[in-house]
Nucleic acid binder design. Structure first.
Lengths: 170, 170
DNA sequence: CCGAATTGGTTGACGTGTCAATCATCAGTC
DNA sequence: GACTGATGATTGACACGTCAACCAATTCGG
């Protein structure tokens, strides 16, 4: 009892109601992700990670990219990409070779096998995105998802920027 | 221009615009999840999975539950829970023992250590939920998240029900 | 030109999550 | 009371993701 001097701080816990929205948001986004992953797996035997990599490569000139460029396009850490590429290379989906201009750098190329599998997976995957995500929402709701997602995204970025002063303009 | 005879099917791929919302939704929800996981890890040394399990146990009578009940509360598969409990047991966060009435069943109890850690993690975690999620959104946006999430959730459930006829009333 | 710091990328260890297989127990049937 | 099938839970194998350590090539300061 006796609210302990709340309200002034604005740093208090969420209400029960807010917490319920939070929980549902987390659970649902994970369920959606799992559904798409399962679809990709069963229709083409690849993972969402595989798909991201192959999508980026398939849109690149000569179907190849520097490892660092690929990491940026996927929004992945280098280490994660490196591990993933090793697994994909073992399955002959991609090939790695050295870059000519910088001996440190690696070039990742989509193999013919990889390109074929990507093409054959793409249509079904996109249909599933529509079926599970787009079709679940009215146009207004889709618009609402866009704006709320953007708000969350911006907020996270601002938070990250605040935490990492780095190249401050001084 | 020249829409390729779309609209009639409703089973076509998402538009570029819809796809952009989808991508942002996936990326952002993962970024949010990662942020919360990192916060929990650094403040209390536990994972979101640990937190879910301890939350459910802490609210249960005698701070213990049957394994199956715990799995239901967390919304996890049995196998996942079993693996997770083994790891938590090694860290003395929970303890497992046999149930009296059904020799197959296992009872999971929150240890004193686990209860203490959970209590000390809870406030910071909830504050972070507010900071990262609730505070990022206006009240209207929070409401929009609620309704869109509910729509996605319902749609997924309907889809799952359609795929699994099981106990149909025949 | 030499050495230090930086950059591009890989690796190992480890926690996590899924699937399929397994195992013991329980419930129902004859 | 043994045979059958469902149920509660565990296990092993393997993909995935993160962190920290590492290595080699490069860049920069002197």
């Amino acid at each position: 009892m006796a609210q302990p001097a709340a309200r002034a701080t604005a740093r208090r816990s969420p209400t029960v109601d807010e917490l319920a929205v939070w929980r549902d948001y987390v659970e649902t986004s994970e369920a959606v992700r799992r559904t798409l992953a399962a679809g990709l797996q069963s229709s083409s035997g690849i993972s969402p990670g595989d798909y991201s990599v192959m999508l980026a490569l398939s849109e690149a000139p000569d179907r190849e990219l520097r490892s660092s460029a690929l990491a940026d396009l996927c929004g992945w850490e280098r280490s994660r990409l490196s591990h993933h590429l090793r697994r994909m290379e073992e399955r002959d989906l991609v090939a790695r070779r050295q870059a000519g201009d910088d001996a440190r750098s690696a070039i990742v190329a989509l193999t013919d096998v990889g390109a074929r599998i990507f093409r054959s997976s793409s249509a079904a995957h996109l249909r599933l995105v529509r079926e599970v995500f787009v079709d679940a929402l009215t146009p207004e709701q889709l618009e609402a998802v866009r704006t709320t997602t953007a708000a969350l995204h911006r907020h996270l970025d601002a938070r990250a920027a605040a935490a990492a002063p780095e190249t401050s303009t001084d």
